[in-house]
């Protein structure tokens, strides 16, 4: 059939059906591709380890890691049941994430609104930000003890700076026209902050939450490495001391899985909080 005839056929409702089929095919391709990547990497690793190209003692192998995960799952870990370790680390992470985000937003908004205060405190905050922040984990392990407080504090410090800078920038970037409009409409300072500044800064803040949840997890694990009795970080630390690299990798896999779940939750939160934004094409998300 000629190209012209083909075009004539592809009109009307047929087009919508074609689009749907194409989208479905595309999705299948993506999933297939993902499986392929996993098979290539894990398979290569496993084969490399069996052919002794990769040293099993230092780099372990996927089947060992899977076996360790299974053992943890069915028989529990050396520290107790697996779910408890995951729960403890999640508590520390979420606690640090919430505390750090709340303080970050409050400081960001207050300093963003107050020029004098931000000029006075600016150099201190920049200086504090320049310190490699995981070292505060050592400080908190000493001053706050070995329980959950030290881990929450470490995670919160990591989260705070990211959220703070984003909230601050978000407040500073508020469209001046919108502020002028709100003032003309009669908004007082409080209304200006709650109805214009914060909603406008929210897209910046929420964007920073993606990064900062990962950082909270880092903070919690680092806190556990500095001294703890439970948690995924402690599990990794213990495995390291036993030269059990499969255990280290198994811990890492758990952390990665937790982070992915959290990422999905934050994306859902973002869609709820920022409904007013034109929907982002899903393909651009990763």
């Amino acid at each position: 059939m000629s190209a012209l005839g083909e075009q004539a056929v592809r009109t009307g409702p047929d087009l919508a059906g074609r689009r749907r089929r194409e989208a479905r095919r595309r999705q299948l391709n993506v999933i297939g591709g993902r499986v392929l990547v996993a098979v290539v990497i894990l398979g290569g690793w496993e084969l490399g380890a069996r052919a002794t190209v990769i040293d099993r003692f230092f780099w372990s192998q996927p089947s060992d890691i899977a076996a360790t995960l299974w053992r943890w799952f069915t028989e529990g870990t050396d520290l107790g049941p697996l779910w408890l370790q995951v729960l403890v680390t999640m508590e520390e992470t979420v606690g640090g994430f919430v505390v750090g985000s709340v303080f970050g937003v409050i400081f960001g908004v207050v300093l963003g609104r107050n020029r004098l205060l931000s000029d006075v405190l600016g150099p201190y905050i920049k200086g504090a930000n320049a310190i490699p922040r995981v070292v505060v984990g050592a400080l908190f392990a000493v001053s706050l003890g070995l329980d959950i407080k030290a881990k929450i504090a470490t995670a919160a410090v990591l989260v705070f700076f990211v959220v703070f800078f984003n909230a601050f920038q978000g407040v500073r970037e508020v469209d001046r026209n919108l502020i002028a409009n709100a003032r003309i409409l009669g908004a007082d300072d409080r209304r200006l902050t709650t109805e214009i500044i914060i909603p406008s800064a929210l897209s910046w803040i929420v964007a920073s939450l993606h990064t900062s949840f990962g950082l909270a997890l880092v903070g919690a694990v680092v806190g556990e490495l500095f001294g703890a009795t439970e948690g995924i970080g402690e599990l990794i630390y213990l495995s390291k001391n036993l030269f059990d690299t499969a255990g280290v990798f198994a811990g890492m896999a758990l952390l990665a899985a937790t982070a992915l779940v959290a990422e999905a939750l934050i994306t859902a939160l973002e869609d709820r909080l920022i409904r007013w934004r034109p929907p982002v094409a899903t393909e651009t998300r990763i």
Partner: peptide, 11 residues
């Protein structure tokens, strides 16, 4: 005041 650029609140 109707502003030159869009000043309705997007959220």
């Amino acid at each position: 005041y109707v502003f030159q650029s869009d000043a309705v609140f997007p959220w």
